[in-house]
Write a protein that binds this DNA or RNA. Structure first.
Lengths: 192, 192
DNA sequence: CCCCGATTGGCACTTGGTGACACAGTGGGC
DNA sequence: GCCCACTGTGTCACCAAGTGCCAATCGGGG
């Protein structure tokens, strides 16, 4: 069944390419699904068989980035504390963004400005946290003073993502300032 | 025009009351605007003149909570460092939640589970950050090593909110565990 | 009492999203 | 070669969220 999946992935890629072109031209909200479907040479109904909605076109990209962060975090030495390990895990993505700033910056601004993408942002947070928190948990002290549910991994992961977001927004708004420096300052200010 | 505003506020309260009753009975997504409008004795069209959408019924409550946090933060001694000041500022809300757990817990679970409320959650984050970050900024060291945009206040505020969210989710999922203790552990694990 | 402005309701329309059904290609077993 | 099941696709109908437009209505001041 790999053949079917391959074809499906190819169609998804093709649709995504047309969609992103339209988003860049007209913005996210102004682009209707009918336009995307027409540009992709398929019916509206068929579009919904490849994507759950317009959001997924954006979300699927963000999920990829999350997977990369996860991979990078797994590659760090197991005895490295959580905070510096997270900082290092972000580095791949940071460099990628700096390299393709012409694409990444408008994307960040779109994520910030389009109300229709707020739900997508929240889902990204949730997915990344779900993905990274277990990896972070391994780097926290096994000894706990308290009993009951352990909030530490989710809190640390969420905080790191908050720093990452803060740095990305500042970077998108201030061309010329390196993202790495913004992220360094953000993360140091929270946990020195 | 205070009279008009007063009447308007009264209507909004009334509509919100009916809406929350329906949300509790059927869930957020399953409740249609037509139902809310009918229960409130007004037309669909008029509902939209009082609220921008179903979301605002939820968001307006969350905004109130944000204002309270802001008030509490302003009331802290000005020389108190940001992190403990934020922890203390959350305390009012924490106690309120514990006190009305029968309402607060289902609400938290609704916020977590209803996909239609993800955008609302993200907006809440944005609004609270916008509100609190300037207050946090006053508690950060005025001396900075780096030049360029200052990401610290947003990063610290966002991290604190991430801890608060992590604690709230754990609290909603684990009845019997005090929210204050969960929040303490979350915030200590990020910045000890 | 009448007029003016604000509030309201009804209507039509766009968009997102879903379910039901029919149709075409494809590959396999007989 | 023929029938079969499976899959992908398109068409149609439908619902819910919003929004613009216009007519009706209600309430207070002259």
């Amino acid at each position: 069944m790999t053949l079917r999946d391959h074809a499906r992935a190819a169609v998804r890629d093709e649709v995504a390419r047309h969609a992103w072109r339209l988003f860049a031209q007209q913005g996210f909200e102004a682009t209707t699904i009918d336009q995307i479907a027409e540009a992709s040479g398929m019916s509206r109904r068929t579009f919904f068989r490849y994507f759950t909605g317009k959001d997924e076109l954006v979300l699927s990209r963000l999920i990829e980035s999350g997977d990369r962060i996860g991979d990078a975090l797994r590659a760090r030495p197991t005895d490295e504390p959580a905070w510096p390990a997270l900082r290092a895990a972000f580095q791949h993505l940071v460099e990628l963004q700096e390299e393709h700033a012409d694409v990444a910056r408008p994307l960040q601004l779109m994520l910030r400005d389009e109300p229709a993408l707020r739900a997508t942002q929240q889902e990204r947070r949730a997915l990344w946290t779900e993905l990274l928190a277990p990896l972070v948990a391994q780097r926290l002290s096994a000894r706990r003073r308290r009993r009951g549910p352990d909030t530490r991994a989710v809190a640390v992961t969420g905080s790191a993502l908050a720093c990452f977001d803060a740095a990305q927004v500042a970077w998108a708004e201030n061309p010329g300032v390196p993202l790495a420096a913004l992220l360094d300052e953000a993360m140091e200010s929270v946990s020195a």
